[in-house]
Design a binder for these strands. Structure first.
Lengths: 147, 147
DNA sequence: GGTCTTAATGCAAGTCCTCGCACTAAGATC
DNA sequence: GATCTTAGTGCGAGGACTTGCATTAAGACC
């Protein structure tokens, strides 16, 4: 059983004037191995086990390249580190609590009303999976309300 | 005419066990002088004209302190730099276009439907002024649709 | 398989912060 | 106004990227 779509990816890359390098393949494989969100640093660490000389900047550039190809996407959860994941996973929004730091996922469908308003009134097609919505979660609100 | 509420701020600070330092005052004044969004770096640069030895970390810490006091807030526009502004300005959401980088403001009221859904279904009180919504603006959508 | 073009890599330096720590100075108390 | 506690400062180092540049190596063409 071949690595999922490895050949196709190579073809797709070449069709776009890009190349399939060992580093690129390793980034792609690392991304496929971790099905949930991961960080560039985590990807780099994984790769370094087999290919120690990889440079962090190469990882960043490859994640971007894969995103351009539609194979990866990134999300900003907590203002600081960027989270990466495979593009074929179901997209969802994120709610992160500024008090406890907790994070919950929301189906993008729940954000449809917002999407509709923004499109209708501003012609703006928002990518609601891209940035987390920051606020205060139910349990922290309960505490601060004086429980 | 005294600087707006300078004395009150000092009192408020002391009431919270905090102090009014020259640096703090300068950060506050810089924030008051620029009524729109600004960056920590811009604030630092402004202060340095009159007080060259100020350290960037002091500016960051003071912006945070003023935020804690409810005098400042920050917004993440384009994933990279943090924008600061006075808390007394009208709050609004931001739509930033990932193609042209353009930014438009939306009254928070426009985001009410989203707020309602998140509260009802997730008990989550989102701060919709905190993070910009990333997406594609009307004019860029028109171009890529083939105009 | 050799040549050649240029995308991609690795390295170093830079940006925007954040954090730990020793020192300084607000401001409360005498 | 001297003393004392501790919040706040400056400095240095570190983290998460980003960027410019010389070098390397995909992969297209012979």
């Amino acid at each position: 059983m071949p690595e999922s779509g490895d050949v196709d990816v190579g073809r797709e890359l070449r069709a776009r004037g890009k190349r399939m390098t060992v580093q690129r393949r390793l980034v792609l494989e690392a991304l496929e191995r971790t099905s949930h969100h991961t960080t560039a640093d985590e990807v780099a660490r994984q790769i370094r086990e087999r290919y120690p000389q990889i440079d962090p900047s190469t990882v960043y550039r490859n994640l971007e390249a894969l995103e351009e190809l539609g194979l990866a996407t990134h999300t900003h959860l907590n203002d600081r580190v960027t989270r990466w994941h495979r593009a074929d996973l179901e997209r969802h929004g994120h709610l992160v609590c500024r008090v406890c730091g907790g994070e919950q996922e929301v189906p993008l469908r729940a954000l449809d009303p917002l999407d509709a308003v923004l499109r209708a009134e501003h012609g703006f097609a928002a990518d609601l999976a891209h940035s987390a919505l920051v606020g205060i979660c139910a349990s922290c609100a309960r505490v601060s309300a004086g429980g």
